[in-house]
């Protein structure tokens, strides 16, 4: 499997990258970790004329808390999250997620930003970002803008990014006290896309759920936020009964398709099972937080 020919540029600055994208309208692709893009090139399912590699663009690999949020630079690798004490202590859903994306070697290159910006409903991070209420920072010819994750994820393989815009950073609000989060993925084997994946974040006020976020992987043409389930949980005691009911609502919101990973009704049932498990785990972590 050999890619078709393309030109390659590794700009030294963001503005250079943007102008390269601008100058090759629609024919250029941004290369971050390349773990989704290069296989597409090899199978000749993508044939851009130019690859704009971000590896030399400065200040895209930061992973730190600032101004009340976690900032994940566009070039931060999955493995960086996986081995970060900060992530492990405060953002368990991100740790869960980055530990199950593809396989450990792929995670050494795959970026969190790429996982989200590829907008594959089978990718794991979009669901987590939905549950965590993330925002995306994009930069383009018209400057920088902030896009909520709900608006960022438009459809299968489609984001709100313009062809000459670059995803700079993902921002995850720092969780309030007594918060917990989790991502639970069901896969056929390691390295596989999710049959279904569910991300959950809850904030507890005593035993009452003060805030809830949910995100579903591979349950619809795009990563899905089951809003009714979230709304239902707020103000309820976070016990087995309310969790089960929320899981039912999440399953109703899902719109999976039958494929090699299972029939649609099974996947819907898995939304129920995994939502239950993700919420249980998130609640347990919130109680310990």
């Amino acid at each position: 499997m050999i890619p078709s020919a393309f030109d390659y540029a590794a700009p030294q600055s963001l503005s250079e990258a943007i102008s390269l994208l601008q100058g090759n309208a629609g024919q250029a692709k941004v290369l971050a970790g390349g773990q989704s893009l290069i296989p597409l090139l090899k199978f000749r399912l993508a044939g851009p004329e130019l690859l704009v590699d971000l590896r030399k663009v400065p200040a895209l690999d930061h992973l730190e808390e600032r101004d009340g949020h976690l900032a994940i630079g566009a070039m931060v690798r999955e493995s960086a999250l996986e081995h970060s004490a900060l992530i492990a202590s405060r953002y368990p859903a991100l740790l869960d997620t980055s530990s199950v994306v593809a396989d450990p070697l792929v995670r050494n290159y795959a970026t969190v930003g790429g996982n989200v910006a590829h907008a594959d409903p089978a990718n794991d991070h979009p669901a987590t970002m939905l549950a965590l209420r993330a925002t995306a920072i994009a930069n383009g010819p018209n400057g920088q803008r902030t896009i909520s994750i709900d608006d960022f994820l438009v459809d299968t393989f489609e984001t709100a990014l313009a062809p000459d815009e670059v995803l700079m950073e993902l921002r995850v609000p720092r969780p309030a006290a007594h918060s917990g989060s989790a991502y639970v993925k069901l896969e056929r084997k390691v390295g596989d896309y999710a049959i279904i994946g569910v991300a959950a974040q809850v904030t507890l006020d005593g035993e009452v759920c003060a805030q809830a976020g949910l995100g579903l992987t591979n349950a619809a043409p795009r990563a899905l936020r089951p809003r009714e389930a979230e709304t239902f949980l707020v103000g309820k005691r976070l016990d087995e009964e309310s969790i089960r009911h929320a899981a039912e609502l999440a399953a109703s919101a899902a719109d999976p398709v039958s494929d090699l990973r299972g029939p649609a009704d099974y996947k819907r049932a898995m939304v129920r099972t995994l939502t239950t498990r993700a919420l249980r785990l998130a609640a347990q972590r919130a109680r310990q937080a």
């Binding site: 069901l186 056929r188 089960r244 899981a247 099974y266 049932a269 129920r272 099972t273």
Partner: peptide
């Protein structure tokens, strides 16, 4: 034997449980 095949049996017999 795939998970969904087993799950179907569990569901039919009311044994499925998250």
């Amino acid at each position: 034997i795939k998970p969904w095949m087993v799950y179907k049996v569990l569901e039919e017999h009311g044994l499925a449980q998250p």
